[in-house]
Computed example of a mutant assay.
Amino acid sequence: MFYWLLKHLVAGPIARRLFPTVVEGEKNIPDKGAVILASNHLSVIDSFLLPLVIKRRVNFLAKSEYFTGKGIKGALTRLFFTSTGMIPMDRSGGKASESSLRTGLEVLERKGCLGIYPEGTRSPDARLYRGRTGIARMVLEAETNVLVVPVVMVDTEKIMPIGAKRPKIGTQIGIKIGEPIDFSRYRGMHTNRFILRSVTDEIMSEIANMSEQVYADVYASKLRKAIPSS
């Protein structure tokens, strides 16, 4: 109930007024069943905007640092992220990352809607980068059939450019939602690294076809030392 009130009566209307948003293809998101929204990632604000403009509740995997802040500010940030469906994700690798993957699988096995950025981090220069295979592993390992819906955020980097401390109010953005992709033919093949790469590349190809971004066939994380990532 708190989530519904926050989304429909408070945050949603405010977000649309502050950042005029044109949404294309929302009907492509199934009303029920396990779904992954696989989106490009241009701005830290993407995780707030996408869940606020679509009907289904979306659980996004958000970096764990958002949930560990100190003091009143940290507590309010933690409350906001939790109440809007964000799930902490540890990106340090090893057992921590495995635990995050399991959390995502739990959402899917409840037939929920999970938001994922296959690139693994925010684009440092508005290009589209190579996808990480974690998304494919979730799709193929889940005990229920999972549809993947490609999503493209348009111009959201103009709201909060890297290094900016405040969003640019009034920036018009777009969200394009593509048709669902069914990978059921590969179910149970999550240990095959070639299949994982093939599925991931197909998802990224769909995102690239919907987007006007230049594609770079390298991992965005390789640029972290030069430009901070989200």
Rank of each mutant, 00 (worst) to 15 (best):
S230D: 15
D217Y: 08
R102I: 14
M1R: 13
G170C: 07
E202R: 11
A208M: 09
V151A: 12
P180M: 01
S92G: 04
Y117L: 09
K165H: 11
A96D: 13
G170Y: 01
P161H: 07
I14M: 14
A34W: 11
E143V: 01
R56S: 14
K158G: 00
L42V: 10
N145L: 00
T84Q: 15
V151D: 12
F67D: 06
L147T: 06
S198R: 15
V218F: 05
E65V: 05
S83Y: 04
P30N: 08
Y219P: 07
R166Q: 11
K27I: 04
P167N: 10
M86D: 13
E106H: 07
E157Q: 15
N192V: 00
G94S: 08
A11V: 15
Y3R: 15
D31Q: 12
L76N: 01
V10G: 02
F19L: 09
L76H: 01
D182V: 03
L140F: 10
R122C: 11
G85N: 10
F60C: 07
V58I: 15
M86H: 15
E179M: 10
I175M: 06
V139I: 11
S211R: 05
F183H: 07
A38S: 10
G85K: 14
I116G: 08
K95H: 12
S83P: 00
G33N: 02
A11D: 00
G94W: 09
H41Q: 04
S123L: 04
K176I: 04
R224D: 12
V146I: 05
D217L: 02
I181F: 05
G163P: 13
T144C: 13
Q172H: 12
K165V: 03
P13K: 12
S230C: 05
G174N: 06
R187D: 06
P51Y: 11
V154F: 01
L76D: 08
E106M: 06
V53G: 09
S184Y: 08
K168V: 09
Q213P: 01
G94V: 03
P88Y: 07
A62M: 07
E109A: 01
I54M: 07
V148A: 09
K111G: 02
L52V: 12
I45W: 11
E24M: 04
G188A: 10
R137T: 13
E24Y: 07
L105N: 02
V107D: 04
T191Y: 09
G188E: 11
M210E: 04
L147S: 11
I227C: 11
P51H: 10
I227L: 08
K70M: 09
M160D: 03
L52Q: 13
E143W: 01
N145A: 10
V214P: 01
K95P: 03
